[in-house]
Write a protein that binds this DNA or RNA. Structure first.
Length: 315
RNA sequence: CGCGGGGUGGAGCAGCUUGGUUAGCUCGUCGGGCUCAUAACCCGGAGGUCAGGAGGUUCAAAUCCCCUCCCCGCAA
């Protein structure tokens, strides 16, 4: 199989790595342009680019996929299949139709649910108990292609974006390998998505990061887990951002007479804060300008005490 | 030179604006006590010279000025 791989972030890199380690090393990789990022705005290479360079795989970083020079170059590789994982841009039909087997995409959700930019985060945020990856043959729509393979994984109360992301990136790698085999044997089956069940996972915005203590403890917990370790859910304490990175739900806690956001108790177990329904036991935080730390350390340093209020940020 | 926060005993912080007795707090740790017992409580101890610069100012600097190194947030 002559494979061209398209992808950009860490999730994609894991899939690329799996391919390489299984004897399916792509002949070329297409990834996003280097962008200024980090402190000092230094130019940063994508995770996929770094790995591809290490593996001595040719890297392309076209500004536009519609660029005829790029297309010519891509055509010259005469790919049998193009594997696309979180590349970040819409592929033009010319590219979709180029490879013999078409473009194969791994999407981190159980399609047709959670099409779009942030499927993992949205699934966790919505409190889903299950998610997965879908390998599909791409068409011109956004994550609307016919499905070839679906791999599921459960979401537990302990899971957060990081753990789900890691698991799904590995599953995606496995899924893609399997689909390649199916394609080669001509045994791949293509199932159309049920449009009626389609949902869209909008990308995470600033407002998604703000913790609203009037919501239920369960909902807030899901929000925190969906946004850890990036970009984090936060509230305000003493005029500063306080990201909450871990918290347990105390669903049977009777918060009557307490205002949402009010701190009910502070002890070695953590900080208990009232919510719209039930309470939240905060066990790990990430204060502004500080490091992510165990809640005990935070309690020792900040003089937080019972009766203090955590405010839902609004700026 | 994108903007901002910070480097103080093992951890998290205060002190620095208005320089000057033994550098303070919470936790951990070590020893002792209380207790059937304890992560609970009580008593006592060890441990820092304040990122680095045989730098500047000063009678005197963790506290003011200068330089270097490092960490973090924003932004992406």
């Amino acid at each position: 199989m002559r494979i061209v791989f398209m992808g950009t972030p860490d999730f994609s890199k894991t899939v690329l790595k799996t391919l390489c380690e299984n004897g399916n090393t792509p002949i070329a990789v297409v990834t996003g342009a280097d962008k200024p990022a980090g402190r000092g705005y230094n130019l940063m290479q994508s995770a996929v680019k770094k790995y591809a360079l290490e593996q001595k795989i040719e890297v392309m970083q076209p500004e536009k996929l519609s660029d005829p020079i790029f297309f010519e170059k891509l055509s010259s590789f005469d790919p049998d299949v193009i594997i696309v994982v979180a590349y970040g841009k819409i592929l033009p039909e010319s590219v979709l139709n180029l490879p013999k087997y078409g473009c194969i995409n791994a999407h981190a959700s159980l399609l047709p649910m959670y099409r779009g930019a942030a499927p993992m985060q949205r699934a966790i945020m919505d409190g889903k108990s299950e998610t997965g990856v879908t390998i599909m043959k791409m068409d011109k729509g956004l994550d609307t292609g016919d499905m070839i393979l679906t791999l599921k994984t459960a979401i537990s109360d302990e899971d957060n974006f990081e753990t789900v992301h890691d698991r799904l990136s590995k599953l995606s790698g496995e899924g893609v390998i399997n689909v390649l085999k199916l394609l080669e044997k001509g045994e791949a089956t293509f199932t159309a998505q049920d449009e009626k069940k389609a949902t869209y996972a909008e990308k995470i915005s600033k407002s998604d990061e703000i913790i609203n203590f009037y919501r239920t403890a369960k909902e807030i917990s899901c929000q925190i887990r969906a946004l850890t370790p990036f970009p984090f859910a936060y509230c305000m304490f003493n005029g500063k951002k306080l990201k909450i990175t871990k918290a347990d739900v105390l669903s049977d806690f009777d918060a009557k007479g307490k205002n949402p956001g009010e701190i009910i108790s502070v002890n070695k177990n953590g900080i208990t804060v009232a919510t719209g329904k039930g309470a939240l036991l905060i066990t790990e935080v990430f204060p502004e300008s500080k490091r992510r730390m165990n809640v005990c350390d935070f309690i020792n340093g900040a003089k937080i005490r019972q009766g203090d209020i955590l405010i839902s940020a609004n700026y």
